[in-house]
């Protein structure tokens, strides 16, 4: 089982690595959008600093959101979904492997890129630690919930919009706790409460999302 898990994860990372646009597109997207904020809001450091925690966070979220659709859709369309669904590997474990690979190829770059966005928005220096920590806990949640959304729409032609509607309510609490943690830090407050709740969301997503995604795949294959 462990072997199959790693092979699936490895394969997905390799596929993403071969098609590098998958990896850099979300980052380019973030850069494009962040440029629009000073253009629209005015370049005053004070204004930007105020919205920085929220914008960095929302950009991380949206740039991940646009990559979620294909987690299972690609595999469904080229038939390779069958190779792991029928492999005897428990489906929730396969989902975990898919989520892991998605995090490595999307979540991790987003975390590493976040300081760049933060600099552009004048985020105060002492908030960087909490920003990185909050994204480190939240990006796996994006990937995990993404598997659920992607599994629900995997055989739809234009499922992207529906996917956003389906997982936005799931992501709202994550955004509240994550962006809240950074905001509290910039205001000089203790972000630990937010971070603890974010960790709780992570544990919940880790346990329930693979089951939900596996159930959705099974229904879709019926």
């Amino acid at each position: 089982m462990g072997m199959k898990f790693w092979v699936l994860l490895q394969r997905d990372v390799l596929v993403a690595w071969r098609k590098k646009s998958n990896i850099y597109q979300p980052l380019v997207f973030q850069l494009l959008i962040v440029t629009m904020f000073p253009l629209g809001l005015g370049a005053g450091a004070q204004t930007l600093q105020k919205i920085a925690p929220a914008v960095v966070w929302i950009l991380a979220l949206i740039s991940t959101l646009i990559t979620l659709e294909n987690i299972f859709k690609d595999d469904y369309e080229d038939g390779s979904l069958g190779l792991y669904v029928l492999s005897g590997l428990p489906l929730p474990v396969a989902v975990l492997a898919k989520a892991g690979a998605h995090w490595l190829t999307t979540g991790l770059p987003v975390i590493l890129f976040a300081p760049v966005i933060a600099v552009l928005l004048h985020l105060p220096g002492y908030a960087y630690g909490v920003l990185m920590l909050s994204l480190l806990m939240a990006t796996p949640i994006f990937s995990l919930l993404g598997t659920v959304g992607s599994a629900l729409i995997m055989n739809l032609k234009n499922g992207g919009m529906l996917l956003s509607v389906l997982i936005m309510p799931l992501l709202a609490p994550v955004l509240i706790f994550g962006a809240g943690a950074v905001l509290e830090t910039t205001l000089g407050n203790n972000p630990n409460g937010h971070l603890a709740l974010l960790a709780g969301c992570f544990v919940l997503a880790l346990t329930l999302a693979p089951l939900a995604a596996a159930a959705a795949i099974k229904v879709n294959l019926e």
Partner: peptide, 8 residues
């Protein structure tokens, strides 16, 4: 979770 987080 939504209700709690939004109230928070």
């Amino acid at each position: 979770i939504i209700r709690y987080s939004v109230e928070w």
